[in-house]
Computed example of a mutant assay.
Amino acid sequence: MKLNSYVNIPLPTLKRLPIYLGLLKECEEKGEEWISASYLAAKLGLKSIQVRKDLSCTGVVGKPKKGFLLKELMDAISFYMGEGHQPDILLVGVGNLGKALLSDRRLTRHGYKIVAAFDVDPGLIGTDVAEHKILSMDKLGDLISRMGIKLAILTVPEKEAQSIANQLVEAGIKGIWNFSSLFLDLPTNVTVINEDLGSRLALLAGQVTHGAEREGSLSASKLGSVSFHK
């Protein structure tokens, strides 16, 4: 199998690859050896032609009437997602959402590890949350520099998001998963994924209220809505 360079893969396709991989892992656990584009399309509320186009970027070629060899396709997608050599991550903001993410084993399933968590609350600093000792913000810059961390999860109130994001970038962070509702104003060499839970719930409510077509409903529920800023 010849793997294509991931830099040539369109951003919308890159956003769907983790979702494909999750479904492929479920099929592997069931003992499946082959998977078809039509099966993936039906499960995710996509058109088969879109799935085939996405998977063609991996360099894996399917066989007529059989589909794709499951293990080969999983290996190719894992390659583009960086599985096996993911960078360490830190989290800032250990409120209810931050605590939930620290405890979420789904990140671990994909090989990601939150190595440090920070907060400004004196009542939290020094305590343990999901096996993470909560650190003071004054240790942020030194830890990022010492460990070479490039990714951060931001789960702080909107009024604090920009200033903390600035601190992260100044310390060397290159990618932020932003759970605040604020659109961050950062240098163009910093990549931000905005995870606006309120907007996603509004999308779901709108589809239910206005009777969205089945395909649209499946796409929203399975694929979600994530905005990228770079």
Rank of each mutant, 00 (worst) to 15 (best):
M1N: 12
N4A: 14
N4H: 13
S5L: 14
I9Y: 02
I9V: 13
L14H: 11
Y20E: 08
G31A: 03
E32L: 14
W34G: 04
S36K: 10
L40F: 04
A42H: 11
L44K: 02
L46F: 08
S48V: 13
K53G: 13
S56L: 13
S56C: 12
C57G: 07
E72S: 07
L73G: 09
I77A: 11
G82I: 07
G84L: 00
G84P: 00
P87A: 14
I89F: 11
V92H: 02
N96Y: 13
L102V: 04
L102N: 08
R105C: 12
R106G: 02
H110K: 14
G111Q: 01
Y112W: 10
K113C: 09
V115P: 06
A116Y: 04
A116V: 00
D119M: 03
D119S: 03
D121P: 00
D121R: 04
P122M: 06
K133D: 04
I134H: 01
L140W: 08
G141E: 15
L143A: 03
L143K: 04
R146V: 08
A152Y: 06
T155M: 04
V156K: 00
Q162M: 04
Q167G: 12
A171C: 04
I176T: 09
W177Q: 12
N178G: 05
N178L: 02
S180N: 01
L182F: 10
F183A: 14
L184Y: 06
L186K: 01
L186W: 02
L186E: 04
P187M: 05
V190D: 03
V192Q: 01
L201P: 06
G206W: 00
Q207I: 05
H210P: 00
G224A: 04
V226P: 00
